[in-house]
């Protein structure tokens, strides 16, 4: 193996002592002490550690269906002295777009601030709302830059961005008239524009578009549940936004079930088309619907427990 860089030799030993639980042999060789240095087998350990930070955070889920997008998060209650319902975890980036993240909350706050800046500067330049793919691209680039330099560390968050790009004629900020009555140019006949969009961005800067996305502590079971919904096929076609809200709530409860130790609050937002309940805006799910979704989620969990108990009895 190639010798580690000289500057980190002295500290390499002490590092290995507390990361010994990790089975990977390259850890503790000194290549994990800094960003922007690859290990000889082609890994950036700082980015991988950032992913670990994400894996400790409360579970976040995003569901995309035909009518819109739902974002949900398991907000772990750090203290009983915090006001219930305060300190929101899901943020609005632009009117038609929201973000939820798992991992280090201050990192997430900075991510949100930057995303809002990108959305604003897009509006300044183009006089129109930023499309979700452009926002994801810009933020992906921003995250990636934080893996390149010694002087910074990667973001300790994985973010799920949901948006509904307007299906209407693109509204122009400050427009005065209706434009040409024969319709805007440059549009293909019969092609639909806009629609619900969901992206997940990782600390490395990697981002993909998803039908359903999950991250945080309970991502394994959440992903398993999302896959069952068949969002890519009929599940996504047929699911209404309200059903998606109920599924999101249930998935958060399922994902939490494995770590029953801590109290949590369920926080959910949604974005519909201009014809839907939120009129194209990113908004919190109304309390009545959220309560209903939570009730169903709890009932579903209890149902599962009873089934399990029954199975055991039969055995």
């Amino acid at each position: 193996m190639v010798a580690p860089p000289a500057f980190s030799c002295r500290r390499a030993g002490s590092e290995s002592s507390h990361s010994s639980s990790d089975s990977t042999t390259s850890i503790g060789t000194g290549y994990d002490l800094s960003n922007s240095i690859f290990s000889p087998d082609g890994r950036n350990f700082q980015v991988e550690y950032a992913v670990k930070a994400v894996e400790n955070g409360g579970t976040s889920v995003g569901i995309r269906c035909k009518e819109g997008v739902v974002l949900a998060v398991e907000k772990v209650v750090a203290s009983k002295l915090l006001k219930p319902g305060a300190n929101k975890r899901i943020a609005t980036i632009d009117r038609h777009m929201g973000v939820v993240y798992s991992g280090m909350i201050p990192d997430g706050r900075h991510f949100v601030e930057r995303a809002r800046g990108e959305a604003r500067s897009w509006r300044d330049q183009y006089k129109t709302p930023i499309p979700s793919d452009q926002l994801a691209s810009r933020m992906g680039g921003y995250l990636q830059v934080y893996t390149l330099y010694q002087s910074v560390r990667p973001f300790g968050i994985t973010a799920i961005v949901g948006g509904f790009d307007s299906e209407l004629e693109a509204p122009v900020d400050g427009e005065v008239g209706n434009g040409p009555s024969v319709g805007a140019g440059g549009k293909a006949q019969g092609k639909t524009y806009g629609g619900p969009k969901l992206y997940m961005l990782e600390p490395s800067g990697l981002y993909w578009g998803y039908f359903g996305a999950a991250t945080g502590k309970g991502r394994q079971s959440a992903k398993a549940e999302l896959e069952k919904l068949d969002l890519a096929g009929e599940g996504g076609e047929n699911m209404t936004l309200e059903q998606a809200v109920k599924e999101a709530a249930r998935i958060i409860y399922v994902a939490h079930d494995d770590s029953k130790d801590k109290e949590f609050e369920l926080e959910m937002t949604w974005i519909s088309a201009s014809t839907g309940p939120t009129k194209g805006l990113h908004q919190e799910v109304p309390k009545a619907l959220r309560d209903e979704a939570e009730r169903l989620a709890k009932a579903a969990l209890e149902g599962d427990d009873e089934d399990e108990a029954k199975d055991k009895m039969e055995e």
Partner: peptide, 19 residues
């Protein structure tokens, strides 16, 4: 109009949903 639009977006960062 653009200025008020910007203000409205900033409002959307903080406000509660339609109740």
């Amino acid at each position: 109009d653009r200025h008020l639009n910007e203000l409205a977006i900033e409002e959307a960062y903080e406000t509660e949903p339609l109740a």
